[in-house]
Design a protein around this nucleic acid. Structure first.
Length: 300
DNA sequence: ATCGCGACCTGGTTGC
DNA sequence: TGCAACCAGGTCGCGA
């Protein structure tokens, strides 16, 4: 499941391979991934055809491609989305949803790299939680994602602001780590990993954490995602930009997620799986002690 | 404002 | 063997 490191890997790959190209045609093979675009599949395609891609940017798990018009192609990979760059005529992927035919790299930027020829940008998504839309005037920052917080690698991410906001919330710290309006880019896997590394239980209330504990889990989120970023950045080949949650290029480094019943790498206690927000949470019952139940508000 | 939950979606896996 | 139930989870929208 793509979280910040995987999405950043895709952003970097797209920046190398699609910037400077013109979108020559757009084919929507399934309407669902463009559902957020109110103009419908035909309007979506029309708004992009003939436009040149001038950059590839990211905030949290969202990606957008600013266009020469000041609009942007906005995308989210959801759970199973991929953006792949392929040579024209490569066999269609099983779950190919949208195909963009891109022009060759313009003359002045071209090298002798065969990758400078025409390519296809393909949105492939099995479960279709992800999607694409055209954001009008969204080149700088699409208004659709103005509510998404900066991510912890953003130079303008404000640690003090984050600590302050967490301390004013009663929800558990895991829920707050997943709240993209507080901190973006963290998903279920890296939330569990950051909490394991910080030795904090995800149900500890934001208002029950000391500032130093909040700073610790923030530092660990940076550490675990930073390590994944380094591996991800070297894991795709020249032309094929891939995000695949199942590929598991980072699996070997996981200490909590998916390790139910396996011994904690720190203390040997079996890792426990718990239901949380209709999904799974993994933690060490010894290293990450659960908080005592909050006292019910008194009625006197 | 905040909280917590259901809906959305497919296909691989599990259980009978 | 066949079929149904289950499971993965990011985001949005809703009611409280």
């Amino acid at each position: 499941m793509p979280e910040l490191p995987e999405v950043e890997t895709v952003r970097d790959g797209l920046a190398r391979h699609v910037v400077g190209r013109t979108i020559e045609s757009v084919t929507v093979l399934h309407p669902r991934p463009v559902r957020r675009d109110l103009r419908g599949p035909a309007g979506f395609a029309a708004a992009l055809t003939g436009r040149r891609v001038v950059d590839v940017r990211r905030r949290g798990k969202y990606l957008w491609l600013p266009l020469d018009t000041g609009d942007a192609l906005l995308g989210h990979l959801g759970m199973s989305g991929q953006l792949v760059v392929q040579p024209p005529g490569a066999p269609d992927e099983r779950h190919l949803r949208v195909r963009f035919v891109l022009s060759p790299v313009v003359e002045e930027h071209a090298s002798r790299d065969p990758g400078d020829g025409p390519v296809e940008l393909r949105f492939v998504d099995q479960r279709m939680f992800g999607g694409l839309s055209v954001s009008q005037g969204g080149a700088e920052l699409p208004p659709e994602i103005a509510h998404i917080a900066r991510d912890p690698f953003d130079p303008d991410f404000d640690d003090d602001l984050f600590v302050g906001r967490v301390r004013r919330r009663t929800a558990g710290i895991k829920r707050l780590l997943l709240d993209q309006t507080l901190i973006s880019g963290v998903g279920n896997i890296y939330a569990d990993e950051a909490l394991w590394r910080a030795q904090l239980h995800g149900e500890r209330g934001g208002d029950r954490l000391r500032p130093i504990e909040i700073r610790r889990v923030l530092a660990e989120a940076r550490a675990v995602m930073g390590a994944a970023l380094v591996q991800g950045g070297t894991s795709f080949d020249a032309l094929y930009v891939n995000v695949n949650g199942e590929s598991g290029y980072f699996d070997r480094s996981l200490h909590a997620y998916g390790r139910e019943g396996l011994p904690c790498d720190r203390c040997g206690t079996p890792i426990r799986r718990a239901e949380f927000m209709n999904r799974s949470s993994f933690s060490c019952p010894r290293c990450q002690p659960a908080p005592r139940a909050r006292r019910l508000p008194s009625r006197d």
